[in-house]
């Protein structure tokens, strides 16, 4: 872990990973979209609208994954005080908020033909909405404080407190058991989705993950550069 705390080493590593992530992203997105639109069966109950799943489910997975990235980097930032961990949390938050918004919007569009309504106050929907608010709060606290070091640590405390919500989201569908269906892919007794639908879903999940890596590294590098420029400006002012 400590090896990657050096920003210069991180930038070198990120530059090496980036091209591969782009290749994986384009490849899996193209193949996954082709499968999702043309080479996967329609559902016997849901018809064509089942194809929304190939965007909705990966977005929902990523909304939780990104929050876990923020929570882990917040923990590292608080315990070991690595500036890079703070930067990681800050860089990941808007991406996670976007994934959460995407999951909510696609879910609403899928809910209208299937459940007859865009929105219900069901356990899973409500807890994902809470997750979206948590992202907003996390980003707001970054903006509300002038001292970046302090803002980062305050945001980290909030992110760790909010991480209590992640298991609630994961298990909400088993606990409340309302309109949203229970977990179908990741469960102990094996997936209940047929392979012909699982494969495009899997491809899209990898594409979303690769997209996250690209934007995440890109935003982290931008943040490192921004801080470098701020330091250089400060030196210039104090030097003259």
């Amino acid at each position: 872990m400590h090896i990657f705390a050096n920003p210069a080493r991180f930038v070198r590593l990120a530059d090496k990973i980036m091209p591969w992530a782009v290749v994986v992203f384009i490849g899996t997105l193209g193949y996954g979209l082709y499968l999702a639109f043309f080479d996967s069966p329609i559902d016997y109950q849901q018809g064509e609208s089942v194809r929304i799943m190939y965007v909705h489910v990966p977005a929902a997975w990523m909304s939780m994954f990104t929050y876990m990235v923020i929570a882990v980097s917040s923990f590292v930032a608080l315990v070991w005080r690595h500036p890079l961990a703070q930067i990681a949390g800050k860089a990941a938050a808007p991406i996670g908020a976007a994934f959460t918004a995407l999951a909510l919007v696609t879910g609403a569009l899928w809910g209208k033909p299937m459940w007859g309504t865009y929105w219900v106050w069901d356990g899973r929907l409500t807890s994902v909405l809470i997750l979206f608010f948590l992202y907003l709060g996390y980003m707001a606290i970054w903006q509300a404080m002038d001292d970046e070091e302090k803002a980062g640590r305050a945001a980290a405390i909030l992110a760790l407190v909010g991480s209590v919500n992640i298991p609630i989201i994961k298990f909400s569908v088993d606990w409340w058991n309302t309109l949203h269906q229970p977990a179908s892919v990741m469960r102990l007794d094996g997936s209940t989705i047929d392979g012909s639908m699982l494969w495009p879903l899997f491809m899209m999940a990898i594409a979303f993950q690769a997209y996250f890596v690209i934007v995440f590294f890109w935003r982290m590098k931008l943040e490192i550069d921004r801080r470098k420029i701020a330091v250089l400006r400060l030196q210039e002012v104090s030097g003259s």
């Binding site: 608010f133 709060g137 606290i141 909030l158 407190v161």
Partner: peptide
């Protein structure tokens, strides 16, 4: 330490109250 922390406070706390 924020001068107008009240609004931010509700954004931070209300989701956790649900």
């Amino acid at each position: 330490a924020m001068r107008r922390g009240g609004v931010l406070l509700s954004l931070l706390v209300l989701p956790l109250y649900i």
